[in-house]
Design a protein around this nucleic acid. Structure first.
Lengths: 227, 227
DNA sequence: CTGAACCATTACAATTTTGTAATGACCCCG
DNA sequence: CGGGGTCATTACAAAATTGTAATGGTTCAG
């Protein structure tokens, strides 16, 4: 198990390195954000521990860059108390956990173990993807272009259905019965509205558009036609 | 792909058998609920198609019995229009889909294919269990003693955490950070309340009790001590 | 025993999610 | 073009989930 710590405050860095080493991990420590970034991009780590506040690049820049390069290492964020913004940013970009400084070492160790165990499960049939849109069934997570997208239960169910049937036209009746508990007697536009809301989150700020309307037939999730 | 149809109305039964056979499935047809029950218990099917209204046993009795015997065949329910009760009962007992009679054969076929595809994925590390409590991570489904339990997002997250750590004491701080987005500065009793609600759904009508309080330490999910 | 800490339980309030309905845009056929 | 059907969009209402706070019960130390 190989970890990378990116932390500029040398006291904290040393402390963490030593503690984790004693706990049996192989630990690299980068004291500059850029070094950390480089290492993270080139070496294979099981886990990254990232300080948010770094003099050169902040942690979430590193994270963003990693995600864009499709490096799916679990990331544990270290953030200053009360700096909610970083925290939110980090989680949106796909950090897996965070810890507010100062923290007890035991707490860190517990988090690290959890993340490692989780990451160890070698993604089986647990993830669906089309273009840069990914849906992680186990963790109920959706990302597009590496950015975390927060979906409600119904939105998730709808997207899951569409991704399981990508390229197929889904008539409203089918959607109604799979995502809602109804066999489409009723004349409601719940589905239209749900599609709208899903589009707003999943398609609105991205290209290419993935959710398509087939007039008179239903909806379809797919890459747009060529030409 | 071997299917069992349990349907007493001979016209419908024949119609389905023939249609599904032509679609390339191996089909058994039981015209009595009890026969169907027997077959379902002894033979291995990839899918069951169950009529709810049968003269001898109703479909959901069969279903219940199957689930209690831990036979996890996907089940497609045929229910009469407007008989919402059966529908709800069926889904609670773990039916996977239902279809309101009368229905178009194409619709049935689509459902059957969906269920088979889904069931085909040989459950990887996708399910957690303790005693008769089961949690299906992919489908976000929880059952206890074969009965479907409906959990909210937070409840599910909490139970998932506890099941991943069954037998371990979970301090509130840990729960707070994993299930809520907070690092436990605050003095709130959200966790207590959440545990309460989870207990109400998961433990209240069942034995043995699985959620335990460890005074001063936290909560734990486990089988009760012997003696 | 008694009080303090800890937990359970309940009611209620805030928030979020979900569904309904009304309106306007667009497409397509005549 | 004009009108019917289909979908998009928005605002609003209903329902469900989640969090807060107050109260009462238990346990345990002194």
């Amino acid at each position: 198990m190989k970890l990378l710590i990116v932390e500029d405050e040398s006291k904290i860095g040393d402390y963490l390195r030593q503690g984790l080493a004693e706990a049996g991990f192989v630990v690299d420590l980068a004291r500059k954000g850029l070094d950390g970034h480089h290492l993270a991009m080139t070496e294979d780590y099981n886990l990254l521990i990232l300080d948010v506040m770094l003099p050169d690049i902040d942690g979430w820049e590193i994270l963003k860059s990693l995600r864009e390069a499709d490096r799916n290492v679990p990331v544990l964020f270290l953030t200053a108390r009360d700096n909610i913004d970083d925290r939110v940013k980090g989680l949106e970009l796909g950090a897996d956990d965070y810890l507010v400084k100062p923290f007890a070492f035991a707490e860190l160790l517990a988090r690290v173990r959890t993340l490692l165990r989780r990451g160890a499960a070698p993604a089986g049939e647990t993830t669906l993807a089309i273009a840069d849109l990914e849906l992680d069934l186990m963790r109920r997570r959706v990302t597009r272009a590496g950015q975390r997208i927060q979906l409600t239960a119904k939105e998730f169910a709808l997207l899951e259905l569409m991704m399981r049937h990508k390229g197929e036209v889904l008539p409203r009746s089918l959607i109604a019965s799979q995502v809602w508990d109804m066999n489409f007697d009723s004349d409601t536009n719940v589905i239209d509205v749900a599609i709208r809301r899903l589009r707003a989150k999943v398609d609105e700020n991205f290209q290419p558009k993935l959710i398509h309307t087939l007039r008179g037939m239903g909806y379809m999730l797919d890459l747009p036609e060529e030409g």
